[in-house]
């Protein structure tokens, strides 16, 4: 069920990337897309009555009810890389704003 939320966020992010020309909004759309992808990847590893994959004193010893830890580890990587991409994108946006005094890509235009 949660997969639909992930797919919906991915589609909203792609729609935002296609329609907007504002640089900050583009970065926000990219973040929404990334969030949807992360939710989708985590939901792939879900099992019924799943527990977080951490051994504690009151976990049954047959270990059958853990959710899949591998997608979570992948998403941890993806979150950090998404953070790096967002920081770099915001730095580029700030630099462009310093030169053109606007964030709108259609006002800035292309190379002649």
């Amino acid at each position: 069920m949660i997969q639909f939320a992930g797919i919906a966020l991915i589609l909203i992010g792609i729609y935002g990337l296609m329609t907007t020309k504002h640089m900050i909004k583009l970065i926000i759309a990219l973040n929404v897309l990334e969030l949807g992808a992360n939710i989708f990847i985590i939901s792939v590893g879900f099992v019924k009555n799943g527990l977080a994959p951490i051994l504690t004193a009151d976990v049954p010893s047959d270990l059958l009810n853990f959710v899949d830890p591998l997608p979570q580890a992948m998403v941890l990587t993806a979150i950090v890389i998404g953070f790096g991409a967002t920081a770099l994108g915001l730095a580029v946006a700030r630099k462009v704003y310093g030169k053109y005094q606007t964030y709108d890509l259609s006002v800035i235009g292309g190379e002649e």
Partner: peptide
Amino acid sequence: ANIVTSVVVDYRSFDTLGEITVLFIS
């Protein structure tokens, strides 16, 4: 005890090294 940690830092530690490199480059 945390299995996600054992995947991230032990079984796939090379992946984490690459991740840190990406963060460093950004």
